[in-house]
Design a protein around this nucleic acid. Structure first.
Length: 598
RNA sequence: UGCCUGAUGGUGUAAUGGUAGCACAGGUGACUUUGACUCACCUAGUCAUGGUUCGAAUCCAUGUCGGGCAGCCA
């Protein structure tokens, strides 16, 4: 329908993309393959969105692939609950944008044995997501990882160490002082092989021994001081079952997982810069036949007024500061989704902040701007009154209705309309009337005139107050000839306010959210619970125009002059045949920008 | 007092030896049946000191300040 498609956004550019573009130019790889590798031990948040968009974005820009891989090497922290939520969140975020790049693997598949240049090899390539496929799991590589560890031992590059965790730490030294060799560092290959086999067989208790790389205990890089490759943990694994009692550590498993999947660019955050030499060490000391993946690091996202620490987010949930991981105030993808934030707005935002190695703090306004921008074009305009004040149009008869026409979305090229009926009694926003108006007040005041949006100009004639002096009703005259198409339609007044017919409207619960914290950097606080915004949620019973009775879960609405709203997918009861009709619960995704100084 | 890494308007980010640009925020105005949107204009920056060069945000040196690293977490 739309004649001119919006100009495609310019392809983002950053130092990592520049590297990839260079590799593509020199045809270093047959295909660009990235990966998004969360550990299934918590919910994805807005910080992950940056990584997801970077990895999928790069794959997308080069007709490549981005594997979703669960980095599940620590069974004591992980659970399938997280596997499910993470999968759902990733698919939601990339839907309609990079679905074609999402790499899954056949259900239950493990790396296959192949031969490359006469050398044995393992590889597990991607397939498109469907009913018979699933995400990749590092735990599917435990067999290969074990085999590689044996190879490292045979090459004299790894040894079984009997030091306790405490002694291992002591031997490691400190950043400004070299460590010293473990007394077990020079065990024979045969003894190491025997001990490692018995570790796997379950002969030793947790922590009794470990498999360590043999690198350099005096290295200025702490991560090269014979880091552990395997630890003993007699626990079942959520994905691998009870087959193993030794589990590989991140630095050992990650680079090899990347290799097994044919990852070309392994992108992670800055705290892993120090690990990169280890990443390369493992790969280079195994004599692998295919091209090796390489690690690149970027600065994680820091957003003002938000917290992304898993531990602290969990505290918010357990202390019931919020209703759950998907509370619309949470920075989790499930929370943002429930709040009504479109995935496209999240993508626009995270790609907009760019990718650098600078530890920055992004202002909340940047995020809010991206959300409003997206919603402005997508949202259907509706009239709703959050804090109702009754207004009587004294020159309209009690049963009389005046048909008016409202525009659904003025941003559309050919906006559609809907009818709304003006009646004698309407509700206006309490804030839109002031008995004693502040300077520059455009709205209704005693004796003043204002336009009821889509209807006509009204004049305030008198106030009705209760015994306590509170205003209970405003009585006005409707100037019906100022309606659209009427002789005085062009009459100008400074203010236009929204309204809802009092006799033909819907009640709805509306949840108004504000930022969860009162300070820009809650993470820097000694006690972040002390800076929780006590007014982060306000619940009101609003009056909605009748057409909202058929509101849909997936639709986005702008309640005019108020903000963008979406049905709460959990608590709304849409289209239910219940006698009382649907239960409507709206979340305010974000308010409209308000440049009128308060 | 070790190693790694970084520093460009208020914020975020471009410019890879040749005109310091963009976005957000802020300000002014236009338009407006949303104090929204849109549009126009304005404000505001290369951490410091030296050096190389015709020319430096960019290269070199030194310094300052920030972030990361001593899990059998990822």
């Amino acid at each position: 329908m739309s004649a001119e498609p919006t100009a495609p956004a310019p392809a983002p550019s950053d130092f990592i993309r520049d590297i990839v573009v260079g590799h593509v130019a020199e045809q270093r790889y047959a295909k660009i393959v990235t990966r998004f590798p969360p550990e299934p031990n918590g919910y994805l948040h807005i910080g992950h969105a940056k990584s997801i968009c970077l990895n999928f974005g790069i794959a997308r820009e080069h007709q490549g692939q981005c594997n979703l891989r669960f980095d599940d090497t620590n069974p004591v922290k992980e659970d399938v609950e997280y596997v499910d939520s993470i999968t759902r969140d990733v698919r939601w975020l990339i839907a309609g944008w990079a679905d074609q790049c999402l790499g899954f693997k056949p259900k239950g598949a493990h790396p296959g044995r192949t031969t490359v240049n006469g050398q044995p090899d393992y590889y597990l390539g991607p397939v498109a997501p469907d009913a018979n496929s699933e995400a990749f799991f590092a735990s599917d590589y435990f067999d290969q990882l074990y085999e590689y560890a044996v190879e490292l031992i045979k090459r004299g590059k790894a040894y079984v160490c009997d030091l306790s965790a405490e002694d291992t730490e002591k031997y490691r030294g400190s950043p400004d002082a070299p460590g010293k060799d473990s007394p077990f560092r020079h065990r024979s290959v045969a003894e190491n092989l025997d001990l490692f086999t018995r570790m796997k067989a379950g002969e030793f208790p947790d922590g009794a021994r470990s498999l360590r790389s043999k690198i350099d205990m005096a290295s200025p890089n702490m991560w090269l001081r014979d880091p552990l490759l395997y630890r003993i943990r007699h626990v079942a694994h959520h994905h691998a079952g009870d087959k193993w009692c030794i589990y590989p550590l991140y630095d050992y498993a990650h680079c090899l997982s990347d290799y097994l999947e044919g990852i070309t660019h392994s992108i992670c955050t800055l705290e892993f810069v120090d690990h990169r030499p280890l990443y390369d060490w493992v790969l280079e000391n195994l004599g692998l036949p295919r091209a090796l993946p390489h690690q690149y690091e970027f600065a994680k996202l820091n957003l003002a007024y938000t917290l992304v620490s898993k531990r602290k987010l969990l505290t918010l949930v357990t202390e019931k500061v919020v209703s759950g991981w998907d509370d619309p105030r949470m920075p989790t993808l499930s929370g943002l989704r429930r709040r009504g934030i479109p995935a496209s707005a999240l993508r626009t935002f995270v790609t907009g902040v760019g990718v650098t190695k600078f530890d920055s703090l992004t202002e909340a306004a940047v995020f809010e701007n991206a959300v409003r921008g997206e919603l402005n074009t997508a949202a259907q305009r509706r009239l709703a009154v959050l804090k109702p004040l009754k207004l009587v149009l004294t020159n309209l008869a009690a049963g009389e209705t005046v048909e008016c026409t409202a525009t659904n979305n003025p941003q559309d090229e050919n906006p559609t309309t809907r009818p709304i009926a003006l009646t004698r009694e309407v509700f206006i926003e309490t804030d839109d009337f002031a008995e004693v108006p502040p300077p520059k007040y455009f709205r209704l005041k005693p004796g003043g005139e204002v336009r009821l949006k889509y209807a006509c100009i009204i004049k305030c004639d008198e106030l009705v107050k209760d015994a306590a002096g509170a205003i209970t009703e405003i009585r006005c005259t409707a100037q019906l000839d100022t309606r659209h198409g009427q002789p005085n339609a062009d009459k100008k007044v400074k203010g236009t306010i929204h309204w809802v017919s009092a006799t033909n409207c819907l009640d709805a619960e509306v949840r108004l959210y504000d930022r969860l914290f009162t300070v820009a950097e809650p993470a820097a606080e000694e006690d972040f619970l002390k800076v929780v915004n006590p007014k982060s949620l306000e619940v009101v019973t609003a009056k909605l125009e009748a057409s909202l009775a058929t509101a849909k879960l997936d639709d986005r609405y702008q309640f005019e002059r108020l903000g963008y709203f979406a049905l709460d997918p959990k608590d709304s009861n849409v289209g239910s045949p219940l006698a009382g009709g649907p239960r409507l619960v709206f979340n305010r995704t974000i308010s409209l920008k308000d440049t009128w100084a308060k």
